[in-house]
Nucleic acid binder design. Structure first.
Length: 737
DNA sequence: CGAAAGGCTCTTTTT
DNA sequence: GAGCCTTTCG
């Protein structure tokens, strides 16, 4: 087939520019993925490049999988020979292969954010830094920043900018020692160590350089400095480097992503061909205009000329609800309505939010109304306690030095090894300058003989620890010849973990999760004992939440705005369009971060193909207490003519809001009726004991009345409906006595 | 040693 | 509201 057919001129240009550096600036919905896949297909089928010599870097595993699928359709079999994956996955493979040159044992394990946190706390404790005074997450973020800038502990020390950095550098140093001791790498290490490997071993680098004739990087605006350095290293020989990105969709600066990489690319490769993809195929004109109006308010940006041939479509709807529960309720019932009238299928609809915490209320509404949904993060599967526990056992068997896994499961199920004993173990190991597991080995190696090492344990504790390690040793021995699934089952059984689950809370469900993990392990079975285990552990370490998103089921998608990047849906609801939430309060004191919030909003809007709802709630419970909100400033930048207008004017702004409060929602056969806002003061002031009537809730007695801003919040005990809190000006109350 | 209860803090986004 | 940590009691 002709891989150039069905491409517009700009897309075709991007596909055909195969030699030398290329920068593709791709607006949302401009067929970016199409360009990348067709470019690879073009290289293979037209230019005769072997797929073995092409590297394509994606942002998530899911994106990689999709690209592989699409490529399979274009070039059939040869797609699987491609090097295709995230930076982290590709680096993990390189280090597994060649890490020895940096003294990295190929059995290394990958620590996720939670493991990282545990190890960091350990490090801080050891060097006597109070976690109350220096929050481990903040220290961890600083360490991550350092690694993203390729600063080893020694380099970081030399910065010496502030007292905090001084503290961080000490934590960093010890943390890194503990990682090495555990034969473990964290996410940032995967990238940093690969760059270091290439710096240290030019021969290894040149092997990769000559292998990869063509390199493509997607979502380039969200790469950080190490990632860009890696790209430069790999592309240094042949310079066939193609990066694709959109500065307006840069939303990961908190992960040290730096959209300045795009500018650097232009200066590092002054001969780079720049291709602009500006035609949007995804959204209606209204949605695209809405998105543009929001993003245009960013000062630090190059103006773009996005356009579309698509029809104008429906106006955007800006909706106000009273509480977050009603917000969720509105979303669910509106989706039901769209489905009822045949406007959309459930699978066409998505609900996007700024913070994961918002998903709970939304989810509850979907459950209550019995509408099928899929939650992209949830309690992420691989973060569940039981799943992590079993993985910890497997990791320990694979790499006995893994301190975090050891400490995690040494007493799970309970083996009578308490905190006191573990504290002594840590201290003892540290005094000997060895990892805790190594200390256990000493202890278990010569149990009751006279040449047993001096140790600080009671006879009982020593025996329990030795028994535990004997059990681990036994599993290790068996793992070398045992089939992966047999090993899995043995681990779960012989450690007593299965019985432990069965006897605890929610054992059934937890056991289901273990079986699901077992199902994942099945996929690695064919690789043979040790190989399979290594591959399984690497696989589970590098999955992301969106990876599991399944587009084939007809369910509503609940997703964070960050996760939504790269996806599209016919119908999009963005909820929590409020000051302090979107934009998030943490961005208020930093203009650059505020611009990123705006980009996040832009990303959300541009996911929509046909219908867009921007929803906010008048009240919201944050951190356990309910507060009044203000509509997001981003709403003010949307011109009125793009918004549907059955609502009411908000004084002093250009904003039109549609208020959807459950108690004055019209009967389902009537069209939406705009609510008449009641001017405060028309009602006599209510006080406790007054009898009132509400249009929906019926008769009730006022419990209390509290002034809020220039309104009053009335708490009413209704005869049939229980106690409700209402806002005086909106509630439509009549005084009856 | 381990379970349970109480008290504290802090909440963004994730490979 | 939740998750973490500490304290307390058995």
């Amino acid at each position: 087939m002709d891989v150039l057919a069905e491409l517009n001129p700009a897309q075709r240009e991007a596909v055909e520019a195969i030699s030398g550096p290329v920068l593709i600036l791709a607006g949302p919905g401009s067929g970016k993925t199409r360009v990348i896949t067709h470019r690879v297909a073009y290289l293979i089928t037209v230019c005769g490049v072997s797929p073995l010599r092409i590297m394509a870097v994606t942002f998530t595993n899911k994106a990689a999988r999709e690209m592989a699928e699409r490529l399979f359709n274009l070039v059939s079999g040869s797609a699987e020979q491609l090097t295709l994956g995230t930076f982290h996955a590709i680096c993990a493979r390189i280090l597994r292969q060649d890490g020895r040159a940096l003294s990295i044992d190929p059995r290394y394990v990958i620590y996720d954010a939670d493991d990282q946190q545990r190890l960091l706390k350990r490090a801080m404790q050891e060097i006597g830094i109070d976690p109350k005074q220096y929050a481990p997450p903040a220290v961890g973020a600083a360490i991550s920043w350092a690694k993203s800038h390729m600063l080893a502990p020694a380099d970081y020390v030399r910065r010496g900018r502030s007292y905090f950095e001084e503290i961080v550098s000490r934590c960093y140093e010890r943390y890194q020692q503990l990682l090495t001791e555990s034969n473990a790498l964290d996410f940032d290490d995967l990238l940093m160590k690969t760059v270091q490997l290439f710096q240290k071993s030019p021969d290894i680098l040149s092997r990769y350089q000559s292998r990869y004739l063509h390199i493509l990087v997607d979502e380039f605006q969200d790469t950080n400095l190490v990632q860009y350095e890696l790209v430069k290293q790999l592309a240094a020989g042949h310079r066939n480097i193609c990066v694709v990105g959109d500065p307006d969709q840069s939303i990961y600066s908190w992960r040290s992503a730096d959209l300045r990489n795009i500018l650097s690319f232009e200066s590092d490769y002054p001969d780079a061909k720049i291709v602009l993809l500006e035609q949007n195929y995804r959204s209606t004109k209204t949605i695209l205009d809405t998105a543009s109006s929001v993003i245009s308010a960013n000062a630090q940006r190059k103006p773009k000329n996005l356009w579309t041939d698509n029809e104008a479509g429906e106006l955007a709807r800006v909706v106000e609800t009273y509480t977050e529960q009603e917000e969720a309720q509105f979303v669910v019932s509106e989706i039901e309505r769209l489905v009822d009238v045949g406007e959309a299928r459930l699978g066409d609809c998505s609900v996007m939010y700024r913070t994961n915490a918002q998903s709970r209320v939304i989810e509850e509404a979907f459950i209550r109304y019995g509408v099928p949904y899929k939650l992209v993060a949830g309690t992420r599967f691989y973060e569940r306690r039981e799943v992590k526990d079993v993985i910890a056992y497997l990791r320990l068997v694979h790499n006995p030095q893994d301190t975090v896994s050891l400490m995690r499961i040494v007493n799970v199920p309970g083996r009578g090894i308490g905190q006191q004993t573990l504290a002594r173990l840590s201290e003892w190991a540290r005094s000997l300058g060895i990892a805790p597991s190594e200390a256990l080995r000493l202890l278990a190696g010569s149990p009751e003989s006279d040449n047993a090492p001096e140790h600080p344990f009671s006879p009982r504790a020593a025996r329990l620890l030795a028994d535990f390690w004997t059990m681990v040793g036994d599993l290790m021995a068996r793992s070398r010849e045992m089939d992966l699934i047999a090993l899995f089952d043995t681990v779960v059984e012989s450690t007593g973990y299965r019985d432990y689950l069965a006897s605890g809370e929610g054992g059934e469900e937890r056991w289901e999760n273990i079986l699901e993990l077992r199902g994942v392990a099945q996929e690695y079975r064919h690789l043979g004992p040790s190989e399979g285990l290594a591959a399984l552990l690497e696989g589970v370490a590098l999955v992301s939440d969106v990876d599991s998103l399944d587009e084939t089921t007809d369910r509503v998608t609940l997703i964070t705005l960050h996760q939504a990047k790269g996806l599209e849906f016919p119908v999009v609801f963005i909820v929590g369009m409020e000051e302090r939430l979107l934009p998030h309060i943490r961005s208020f004191d930093d203009p650059a971060q505020m611009e990123e919030e705006r980009r996040l909003c832009y990303v959300g809007i541009t996911r929509a193909k046909r219908r867009l709802y921007l929803v906010y709630s008048f009240r919201r419970t944050l951190m356990g207490s309910s507060t009044l909100t203000r509509p997001s400033r981003f709403l003010e930048d949307i011109p009125r003519h793009l918004i549907s207008t059955p609502g009411w004017w908000q004084e002093g702004t250009d904003r039109v809001t549609e208020a959807v409060y459950s108690w004055n929602r019209p009967p389902s056969d009537a069209p939406d009726r705009p609510r008449e806002p009641v001017v405060p003061g028309e009602l006599p002031h209510l006080k406790a004991g007054d009898h009132v009537r509400h249009t929906q809730f019926g008769e009730g007695v006022v419990v209390s009345c509290k002034e809020v801003r220039d309104d009053s919040e009335v708490t009413v005990a209704f005869v049939d409906q229980g106690v409700k809190r209402l806002l005086l000006s909106y509630a439509g109350l009549t005084k009856t006595s």
